[in-house]
Design a protein around this nucleic acid. Structure first.
Lengths: 194, 194
DNA sequence: GTATAGTGCCTATCGATGATAGGCAAACTC
DNA sequence: GAGTTTGCCTATCATCGATAGGCACTATAC
């Protein structure tokens, strides 16, 4: 039991408490292992009562998706960035990687589609796009002016995160190469025909 | 209806026919959207009868996983490789990427874990490892002797595939950079302290 | 002060899913 | 030809997300 839902709290606080409990259960049983009955049990609620807060299980996942992306956006916004643009890129990407790898359930929900049929709502996806925009900003400040190079760097970082999480969770077998690969990509922009 | 199960065929052929039908349904409804009742209906079988061939739904997924990896291994083995080791690397990785992107359901099943709780059996996973070993062989022939560099290249390719499938399915926005990035990684091995 | 509407929760139930129990008939084995 | 195995069936189970409908409390309107 995580804790009864405080019936005297505001609706907003109660919704947040449900999300917190959902994160705990998702961490324990996996994102896809989350059940409404289990969540309700932890909150000392009946399962149908959860529908007072989320109109479907997918809506709950959508709220978790938005919540996680807000956490990430907040973390990126609070970073103290070095003045050197290249160092700033490394700080931002490192923070991103560490955030992604800090919570397996959150990583799966935010960066993969572990739930059959779940697609984030446009409102929630907008938060994820704000995160991406923050990364693109820092990259552009470091001289990455070709969108193709941005694509490559994003894909490289995603590849490192996935390999790390899948094959060496908790370790640094892949993430230790982040800074070196950032330098490699920044030093070798695509020779395009602009 | 895909086709009734031929009751006079050998057990092996019937099992293969079930897998073929499962691939079709997975392609239509998604890997996770596959249901035993739906599969049985396509084969003109009752749902419990499928348990004569697979002891659980996860066992069916395991057979699909093995089947897909065998397809991939066969494709890699049949490649005519250029004598130039670097060109050989590009041919192998390109074949890998194209195989992964040719079938979305297969890609998800082989390279992600779209099914909650499904983990490939050791026997099936061994086939996936044989695929990986084939890639490592070709990389080593091209002078990649540091396992860390192998890790980085694998992660890079995985990142390209995932970005391509997620954000531009059917296009070439990421995969078009494969050859250039291969050159980049091969020309810049990790400077280690061996 | 009281009628009305909304909120929050409940029990009971639905349809779908994977899985199991148990039975029946054909085919194979010795 | 008796016994076993194979392959299939119907019936049913527990669990899941979702819905229906009702009860109590609160807030608002008049």
């Amino acid at each position: 039991m995580i804790g009864k839902l405080d019936r005297s709290a505001s609706r907003e606080d109660r919704t947040a408490a449900i999300l917190d409990a959902a994160w705990v259960l998702a961490g324990r049983d996996g994102v896809a292992g989350l059940t409404l009955r289990g969540l309700a049990r932890e909150l000392d609620l009946s399962q149908p009562s959860l529908y007072e807060y989320f109109e479907s299980k997918h809506a709950l996942y959508d709220a978790l998706f938005a919540d996680g992306n807000r956490q990430l956006l907040g973390r990126l916004e609070n970073l103290r960035l070095p003045t050197d643009p290249r160092r700033a890129v490394k700080v931002v990407l490192r923070a991103f990687v560490e955030f992604a790898l800090a919570d397996e359930a959150r990583r799966q929900l935010l960066f993969h589609r572990p739930i059959p049929g779940f697609v984030p709502s446009p409102e929630s996806y907008a938060i994820a796009e704000a995160v991406l925009a923050r990364g693109v900003d820092v990259l552009e400040a470091a001289g990455v002016d070709d969108p193709a190079d941005v694509d490559c760097i994003i894909a490289m970082v995603a590849g490192l995160i996935d390999s790390q999480a899948s094959n060496d969770p908790g370790g640094t077998r892949w993430t230790r190469h982040l800074d070196r690969l950032v330098d490699l990509y920044l030093d070798n922009p695509r020779k395009d025909a602009r």
